[in-house]
Simulated assay, not measured.
Amino acid sequence: MTSWLDNLLFGYYPYICLAVFFIGSLLRFDRDQYTWKSDSSQLLRRGQLRLGSNLFHIGVLFLFFGHFFGMLTPHFVYEHFIGAGAKQLVAMVTGGIAGLLGFIGLTLLLHRRLTEPRIRATSKTSDIVIAVLLWVQLLLGLATIPLSAQHLDGSMMLLLAEWAQRIVTFRAGAPELLADAGWVFKAHMFLGMT
């Protein structure tokens, strides 16, 4: 059962997510390009907005580019400069700091959105659901740090990176690489794709 579920979630689901992302983005741009906005609540109350927004965006942008380059850069490109264990340690420290910044920022923004009556009244359910999903995603990402600290040789990081590289290059065998990955890694990956 686990093998079948791993194949579904980490073999087929990434391609479904990528197809929805690219095709959906093109269709939305073509049909409803003026709906690509967020309703600003800045005029309703500025408290917590500047700090929360800045912390969240700094953290998330660093995490996005860190994951993008960290997962998709083949090991042979950087192995002459930095070993897998050292790269993992750098990723844990810098990613942990960025994740914590993003988590604190999003917590402030969620608190603001849920406790301020005027902002709550103008918030869509989808705004709150997306913010909560991002909050859980950041929490799961932070939860991977203690697991990564249990094997500082970089082996799990290399397996996860190899999985991502096989997905984007359409090579077979990607789900099998995750057989020994913990559920926190898998949940973080699934929610990230979603």
Rank of each mutant, 00 (worst) to 15 (best):
I130C: 11
N7H: 10
H188G: 02
Q42F: 12
L159A: 12
T35P: 12
D153L: 10
M189T: 15
Y13Q: 13
T115G: 04
Y13W: 15
T144L: 01
A164D: 06
S38E: 11
L152G: 00
R45E: 06
S155C: 13
H188Y: 07
L72Q: 07
T122K: 03
A174E: 10
Q137H: 13
A181N: 04
A149Q: 06
G102A: 10
T94W: 10
F21W: 14
L109V: 04
G52A: 07
L108E: 01
F65M: 08
D6Q: 07
L140Q: 10
N54F: 11
F64Y: 13
Y12I: 14
F65G: 04
F103W: 14
A181E: 02
V93P: 07
I130T: 12
I23Q: 15
F185H: 08
T94I: 09
V136M: 03
L8W: 00
I104C: 10
W163I: 00
R45G: 03
E176F: 05
L44R: 08
N7G: 10
R46Q: 08
L158G: 06
A187T: 05
Q48P: 09
T2K: 14
L139D: 12
F68E: 09
L147G: 07
L49C: 08
H80F: 13
L18N: 10
R28E: 13
A161H: 04
R171I: 09
V168G: 05
E176R: 00
L44F: 04
L160D: 06
S155F: 15
L159G: 01
E79Q: 08
L5F: 14
N7E: 02
A91D: 03
F62V: 09
I167Y: 06
F81T: 09
Q150H: 03
M189G: 14
F103T: 01
Y78T: 11
L61R: 13
D32Q: 15
V136H: 05
F62D: 02
L43R: 13
R31Y: 15
Q150L: 01
I119R: 02
L61M: 11
K87I: 00
K37S: 14
Q42P: 06
R113Q: 03
G83P: 04
G83M: 00
L133C: 09
L9E: 15
V20I: 12
A172F: 14
L114D: 14
Q48V: 01
H80K: 15
S123K: 02
